[in-house]
């Protein structure tokens, strides 16, 4: 197989980051509420703009994931479902069966496609981000195995990105974006537009169809990006499909990673190190999805939480 010059990922995977409280709550519900009922359960997760380099793009799930649909201020909401299996055999059987996996995601994929086609996703960007967390809990041993997927719509060709210098926007504009994202909830996705008299400003996705700009370079998609690697996070893909559908063109995308710029000055005179990245994507009208998806399943992780959840251990280890 020929080796291309520099193979890099097209999108950075999200890492499932359920905390101890999440598993504690799951265990409780399994015992008291669900018992053997293995229907999917709604959960709410969130991610944040990357605030350091070279850390995983975490998708957080906490104790309140099961009942609260709010996420912390400034965080990006990811709505989804938990599929918890009763036995390890069922967990393995499901994951090992391509048809079962595909059909399980079919509904989420259909909802995403429909939200894009109808334009609903412009009003509600969270419709683009749907999570499925699959898990198996051995409650006696406090072993929890899990993996996640955020289905991305498949496009006829792969997305090609071209990186452009972030200095084309510069720190003042980035600070404006950071502050704007902090002041108003844009649901993780918005537009950065430039007008002759007012300069750059942030607008909700809902303005996509009617905002007028002098040049298409004055319309940039702002994506709150949890990735700290070269590639933007996996969840950008459905946003690109949305844009290609409703306002195609060779467009710039800002993978936003500088939330700290919303704070007051805290930087040395050499200026802030900008970590946000600017890309140009060919958002062609033809990049319409067939309705198939790229699941992008994460690796299966297993944690042993005896030390945290076994009350005898907890008492013994408290010093």
């Amino acid at each position: 197989m020929a080796q291309p010059a520099a193979a890099t990922k097209d999108f950075e995977p999200l890492q499932a980051a359920p905390d101890v409280g999440f598993w504690q709550e799951l265990s409780q519900r399994k015992l008291d509420l669900w018992r053997l009922d293995s229907s999917n359960v709604p959960v709410t997760a969130f991610y944040e703009a990357s605030q350091a380099s070279r850390v995983p793009a975490k998708c957080f799930l906490q104790k309140d994931a099961f009942q609260d649909t709010r996420v912390p201020v400034g965080a990006v909401k990811v709505v989804g479902e938990l599929k918890n299996f009763n036995t390890e055999e069922e967990f393995r059987a499901f994951l090992g069966n391509a048809d079962a996996r595909q059909s399980c995601l079919a509904e989420a994929v259909a909802q995403i496609s429909s939200a894009i086609a109808s334009g609903k996703a412009l009003q509600e960007p969270w419709q683009l981000r749907r999570l499925l967390l699959c898990s198996f809990a051995d409650l006696k041993k406090y072993h929890y195995s899990y993996l996640l997927t955020l289905p991305a719509l498949k496009t006829p060709k792969p997305w090609q990105r071209v990186r452009e210098p972030i200095e084309d926007l510069g720190p003042e504009v980035l600070a404006l974006v950071a502050k704007g994202l902090r002041e108003k909830d844009f649901d993780g996705l918005c537009l950065l537009t430039r007008a002759a008299d007012v300069g750059w400003s942030l607008r909700p996705m809902a303005d996509l169809l009617n905002v007028k700009v002098e040049s298409e370079d004055d319309l940039i998609l702002v994506f709150v990006d949890p990735s700290s690697e070269e590639a933007p996070a996996w969840s950008l893909q459905n946003a690109l499909v949305l844009l290609a559908k409703h306002r195609p063109g060779r467009r710039r995308v800002l993978a936003f990673r500088d939330p700290q710029l919303a704070g007051a000055s805290g930087y040395t005179s050499s200026g802030p190190q900008l970590r946000s990245l600017l890309f140009r994507y060919a958002l062609d009208a033809e990049m319409e999805s067939s309705g198939d998806c790229r699941a992008g399943w994460s690796k299966i992780a297993t944690v042993d939480l005896t030390r945290f959840l076994d009350s005898k251990m907890v008492a013994a280890n408290a010093v």
């Binding site: 994951l95 391509a98 993996l147």
Partner: peptide, 21 residues
């Protein structure tokens, strides 16, 4: 539990592909 075989299968069938240059 050891899921490495299953992992491998998943990554091959529909995991996170690395991408083309």
């Amino acid at each position: 539990p050891d899921f490495s075989d299953l992992d491998k299968q998943l990554q091959e069938e529909d995991g996170y592909p690395a991408a083309s240059a």
